[in-house]
Design a protein around this nucleic acid. Structure first.
Lengths: 202, 202, 202, 202
DNA sequence: TTTTAACCGAGACGGTACGTCACGTCTTGTG
DNA sequence: CACAAGACGTGACGTACCGTCTCGGTTAAAA
C-alpha cells in the first residue's frame, strides 16, 4: 500500500517516450510542410501516437509546438576563431544566416506564428533559441576581451541580442537579402563601434 | 466605340470603394479581436460586402490581410526635437513602443503571421511599415548631422533598421520588456557609438 | 484482446442514433419546406447533429436524402374490403391519391430530384416505396382470386405497378387531376379488363 | 408619331434569334452534363449570349428550362405498320425505350426535376412531350379500329397515357429494366385486354 | 438627322448553400 | 489509469450558382 496518499498514483504510468516522439514529429513536420500545414493529426500519426495522448499532456496546439521547439536542438553555428574580432563576427553571422535559411529556419518562423497566437506561453520559447545562440557569441566576445579588442564599457548582452533581432527581421519580415555585404556593414558600422565605445556620457 | 481595344474594359467595373471598405474593416477587426479571430465573414459583414466580392479580388485570407496592411496608415510617431541626438532617440523609441503596444501593435503582429503563410507577397508589406517609421528617423538624424553630432561615416539606413528590428523582436518574439532603461542602453551603447564612429577599419 | 481481428472495431463506434435522427430530420424538413429548401445545415440543426457527422456518413446531400427516404415508413393506405374487386380498387386508388397529396407527396417528389442527380444510388429507393404500396394491392387481389373475380392468367405484379406509375406521372409530371372519375375509368377500362383477361394470344 | 400608344415600341427590339439559341444551348447542355450541372452561366456562354439577355426574357432558371423543353423537338418514334395491333404496340414501345435511353432521356428526366421545383410552371411542359408521343399512338390505334382489332368501348386516351407513365416510372424512378419481355407482357396483359374489353359493367 | 429608349455582352455584386478541414473533446476496446 | 482509434460539435474556409445590377456600346423607331 502506498503510505503517502498524494504520491500514490494508480493505473498505468505515462510513457515518457511519447513526449519525445511527439516533439520530434512536430519539428520535422514544421520543417517539411511549415507551421500552417502542421496539424495535430499529422503529428499524432507521424509520432505513432493518438490525439488523446497529445491532448492529455498539452492543452493546445500552441503548447505542443512550444514544447517541441523548446526541446529542439537547433543546429549550432560552429566554433569560430579567426584571430580577430571583426572577422569572427562576420563568420559567425554568415553561419547564422545559413542556419536561418536551412530547415531550422521554418521552425524559427513558426515561433513567430505561435508567439502571435499564444502570447502568454510564447514567452518561454525564445530562451531556448537565445541560449543556444548566445553561447558562440560569448566565446567570441570573451576571446576579444582577453585580446583587449573590446572596451570594458561594452554592453555584451545587448550586442548578442541585436544580431538575431535584425536577421530575423530581415529574413522573415522585410524579406530583404542578408548577404556578406550587409553583414560586413552590420559588423563594421554597428557592432564594432558599440563594442569599442570609449565612455558613456550618461 | 472604344478606340483603344486594350483599354476598353468590358463588363461592370469593380467598385474601388469596396477595396478600401474591406481593407478598413480588416484592420479594425484585427485591432479589435486579433488576427486569429478576424474571419472573412466578419470582414465581409463589417465592410458591407459579400464574401464573393472579397474572393473575387484576393484568393486567400492571407492576401486580403496583406492588402489591408499594405494600405494601412500606421499611427505615426510625433515629431521630436529635444535639441540633442541622444534625447531625440530616446524619445523616439519611447514613442514607438507606445505605438507597438497600441492598436497597431496587433496589426504589426499579424504581419508576422501573414508573412509565414504568404512569404511571396509578404515582401510588399514592410515597405509601408518601414517607410512610415523611417521618416521620423531621418528628420532626427539629419538634424544631428547639421549639428555635427553624427560622423559622416555613419550608416544611417542601417541605424534606422535596427530599432524596429530589435523592438519587434523583443515585443513580439522574446516578450521581454521594452522600458526606458532598455531604450537608454540601446541608444547609449549601440546607436550613439555607431553614429559617432570615427573611421572604418575595412 | 479481440479474438477475431476483422471484427475488432477500433475507435469510438458511430452512434446509430445519429443516423435515424438525421433521417427523420431530413424527411420532416422535406415535408415542411420541400426538397429545394431542405439544406444540410437545417437537417443537422434539426437532428441535433453537426454537419461533419453527416458528411462522415454520406458524401453528398443527395445520398443523405436517399438514405432518409429509403428508411422512411411511408404512410400506408388502410386495408380495404368492400366485397367486390372493382370497388376495392377504386377505394384503394382514392386512398393512394390522398397519400400522394399529403405530406409524403413532397417526399415522393423529392425522390425524383434525387433520382436525377444520383442515378446510381436511386436504384435502392423505390424498393421501400413499392414494398409498402404493393402490400395492400396483394391483399385485395388475393381476395379477388379466392372469389374467382380474377383470371388465373392475370399479371398481378404488373397490375400493381401500373397504378403508382400512372398516378405519379399525373400528379408530379403532367399535373393533371387525379379525381374519382379518372380513377374509375382507370379501374374499369384498364385494371379490370386486364385482371379478367381470358387468354394470351402469344 | 405612333397612333396607338400601347403599340409604340421605341428602342432596339429584342432579337428573336437569341431565344432559339438559348433554348438550343439549354437542351444540349442538359443532354451533355445533366440538369444539375446545366448552369445559367454555361447556357449563356454556349448560346453566345449574356446572362442579362436570359433574365430579361425569363425570371427563373426553371422558366428558361421550361421554355427550352417546350420548344424542343423530341426525337420521334418512327411510323410503324406490322399489320397487327399487338406487334405494332410492341415495336412502338421498343422504339420509345430507345428514345428515353438516348440523349432525350436526360431531357425528360430534367423535366421531373423542374416539375418538382416549379410545380406551377411545370404544368405547361408535358403537353409538348405528350403531344409528340401520342401522335404515333393515334395512328396505330386508328388503324386497329379500322381492322376491328379494338373494341369501340376502349378508352384510347387512357391507353396512350399508360405507356409513357409506366416507362418513365421504370426508367427514371425504380430503375428497373424495360426490355422486350417486359414490353410484351405490358402489351399482352394490359394494353390488348383493355383495348378489346367487351363492356363496362358500370 | 438626331434623339431616345431598349437591347446586348461582360462581369461585378449580395446572397445562400455547398463540401472540406482542423481543432479540441468524448467514447470505445485493450493493455 | 494510459493508450490507439476515431466519432463528435464547432466554426472557418474557399467554391459555386443564383438572380440583380451597372458599365460601355449598339440598334432601330420616333421626332
Amino acid at each position: 500500500m502506498c503510505p503517502v496518499k498524494a504520491l500514490c498514483i494508480k493505473g498505468r504510468p505515462r510513457d515518457s517516450k511519447r513526449e519525445s516522439a511527439i516533439a520530434e514529429a512536430s519539428i520535422s513536420l514544421i520543417q517539411e510542410v511549415g507551421y500552417e500545414r502542421c496539424t495535430i493529426e499529422a503529428i499524432a500519426h507521424k509520432a505513432g501516437v493518438s490525439k488523446a495522448t497529445i491532448y492529455r499532456r498539452w492543452k493546445n496546439k500552441a503548447e505542443v509546438i512550444v514544447h517541441a521547439i523548446s526541446h529542439h536542438a537547433f543546429s549550432q553555428t560552429p566554433s569560430i576563431d579567426t584571430g580577430n574580432l571583426r572577422d569572427d563576427l562576420v563568420e559567425l553571422l554568415l553561419a547564422k544566416v545559413k542556419v536561418l535559411k536551412g530547415p531550422d529556419g521554418a521552425v524559427i518562423a513558426s515561433i513567430m506564428s505561435a508567439a502571435n497566437t499564444d502570447s502568454e506561453l510564447a514567452k518561454a520559447i525564445p530562451h531556448s533559441v537565445r541560449d543556444g545562440e548566445s553561447q558562440v557569441h560569448k566565446v567570441i566576445l570573451e576571446r576579444a576581451i582577453e585580446r583587449g579588442d573590446i572596451s570594458p564599457n561594452a554592453n555584451l548582452e545587448l550586442l548578442a541580442e541585436i544580431t538575431p533581432a535584425i536577421m530575423t527581421y530581415r529574413i522573415f519580415m522585410s524579406q530583404q537579402p542578408v548577404n556578406r555585404k550587409f553583414i560586413e556593414s552590420l559588423v563594421d558600422d554597428v557592432l564594432i563601434p558599440s563594442a569599442q565605445k570609449i565612455a558613456t556620457n550618461k
